[in-house]
């Protein structure tokens, strides 16, 4: 099981670096898709298959599709790096290396997966549903109201610009 974890996390880190460093925004977006895929693999290893599947269903299948859709419609060109920024970029990797070092250090200290005792039904659809609508019902409802407000806001904003056009 451990080698799977290192494969998934290593590839996830690799592709998330791709998100940042790819010149072509389409490649950036596709790297993010791949990263999310591997992260969902880690969720499955953590005995949470439901969250892992939702990760693909919501982020990869819905949100990233819309991201790419918009990117392709806008037809963004490859990033042109100007001189001053390039100068700055030269030193950007230093903090990154430090962060990666600490992530790897903490990973080595993480107990192996077989050590974690889990309940039979842990991470199942039933358990996630029960905790969302049971112990965390208030937070869940507040989150849904905030999302609804955002959705209505978007509809109102886009309607306004449409009215001004003619």
């Amino acid at each position: 099981m451990e080698y799977l974890f290192y494969t998934f996390s290593g590839l996830a880190i690799l592709f998330s670096l791709g998100v940042v460093f790819a010149r072509n925004p389409i490649y950036s977006g596709l790297s993010l898709v791949t990263t999310l895929f591997f992260v969902s693999g880690i969720f499955v290893l953590l005995h949470a298959p439901f969250i892992g599947v939702l990760q693909i269903l919501v982020y990869t299948g819905a949100i990233m599709v819309l991201f790419l859709y918009v990117m392709m419609l806008l037809n963004i060109q490859e990033e042109q790096i100007v001189g001053t920024r390039k100068h700055l970029m030269k030193w950007m990797h230093l903090p990154l290396i430090v962060v990666i070092f600490f992530i790897f250090k903490s990973l080595i200290l993480v107990p192996t997966f077989s050590d974690i005792p889990v309940d039979e039904k842990f991470g199942s659809v039933f358990n996630v549903g029960e905790s969302l609508l049971g112990s965390y019902v208030l937070v869940f409802e507040i989150a849904s109201i905030v999302l609804l407000a955002a959705m209505i806001g978007v509809v109102v904003l886009t309607k306004k610009t449409q009215k001004e056009k003619p």
Binding site: F50, V53, L54, I56, L57, T60, G61, V65
Partner: peptide, 9 residues
């Protein structure tokens, strides 16, 4: 859910 999510890819 697995089938749904993978086909959405």
């Amino acid at each position: 859910l697995f089938v749904l999510s993978v086909t959405s890819l």
